[in-house]
């Protein structure tokens, strides 16, 4: 692999971390609620813009990130309660409805923010670069990498070690029984939906600081997320992590070696995986 050095390898890893943050929200909603939320990319972009606006207004990156998560979670609440409730149980109608929402949100953010490129201002402490192993690497990207790992651990603990996580897992397996046992499973579903949306918002605010925000960023992140979930398998946290690593690294390798076909390089492995495992690496038949 000529032309690929440690610096680019790290770029791939940090991109994978961001992809994981976004795609984990997607796969959570897909796995539990059986909703393919094609508005996820638009939620990412919305989170980015909200984070930009809030960080600019308050001067604090943290406030920007929190505002982005909150704003997108609220949009998720409205989407779930206001629209998706009318098409529950119809998988394809749900998907196409969220596609409509994606178009609408994308166009509305274009009205509000125009076609310009925005960058969420990174906090002072994370600007600049650090030197290690003879490398000079941006601090902010290392922060994203750490955040990705932290999100993975937090989600893993949430799903495997808490009561809410137990309810979510039970809801995946058999929503009727868990409802019959007196659990308000709809509320669990709604919480999951909002959590998934908030992860898209978090991704938007964090990603907006190093990938920049522009009107077609939502479509790009959506197709990456789709690739992650198709490779990893739906509803699987580990699958999302492995998928994000594969897609992130392939994308970087592609950009270094075949700049014009970077998109295409994800396609080959995705095809190969699908040929042998149509449900993805960690997907389970339902």
């Amino acid at each position: 692999m000529s032309g690929l050095n440690a610096f680019q390898l790290l770029n791939g890893l940090t991109f994978a971390a961001l992809l994981f943050i976004v795609a984990s929200g997607f796969t959570l909603i897909f796995g539990l609620l059986r909703i393919v939320n094609l508005a996820h990319g638009a939620l990412y972009l919305l989170g980015g813009y909200a984070g930009y606006a809030a960080a600019h207004a308050s001067g604090s990156f943290l406030v920007g990130v929190l505002a982005a998560m909150a704003a997108v979670a609220v949009v998720g609440l409205v989407l779930d309660q206001g629209l998706l409730r009318f098409v529950r149980g119809y998988e394809l109608r749900q998907v196409l409805l969220t596609l409509g929402v994606a178009f609408l949100l994308n166009d509305l953010t274009l009205v509000a923010f125009g076609g310009d490129t925005y960058t969420v201002p990174a906090p002072e402490a994370l600007r600049g670069a650090v030197r290690f192993w003879g490398l000079f690497y941006p601090k902010y990207r290392l922060f994203v990498l750490a955040l990705g790992v932290a999100v993975f651990i937090a989600l893993w603990l949430l799903i495997n070690k808490t009561r809410l996580g137990a309810l979510i897992r039970a809801g995946v397996d058999d929503p009727e029984i868990i409802a019959a046992m007196g659990v308000n499973i709809r509320r669990v579903f709604l919480l999951t939906f909002m959590l998934g949306a908030a992860l898209a918002g978090l991704g938007g605010a964090v990603g907006g600081a190093f990938l920049t925000l522009y009107p077609s960023a939502d479509a790009e992140i959506l197709v990456f997320s789709l690739a992650v979930v198709i490779i990893g398998g739906r509803g699987s946290l580990v699958g999302a992590a492995v998928g994000a690593l594969i897609v992130g690294m392939l994308n970087t390798v592609g950009q270094v070696m075949f700049p014009e076909f970077a998109y295409f390089v994800i396609f080959g492995p995705m095809a190969a995986i699908l040929a042998f495992r149509p449900l993805g690496l960690f997907g389970r038949a339902v």
């Binding site: 998907v95 197709v223 690739a227 979930v229 198709i230 076909f261 295409f264 699908l274 149509p278």
Partner: peptide, 28 residues
């Protein structure tokens, strides 16, 4: 690729495949 899947998976996969064409047209 797509005939191996059905339902929502089919929709997702064809969407991703279509987006690859778009990405190639944009970058090439």
């Amino acid at each position: 690729l797509a005939i191996r899947t059905s339902g929502v998976y089919f929709l997702l996969l064809t969407l991703a495949l279509g987006m690859i064409v778009w990405g190639v047209c944009l970058r090439w």
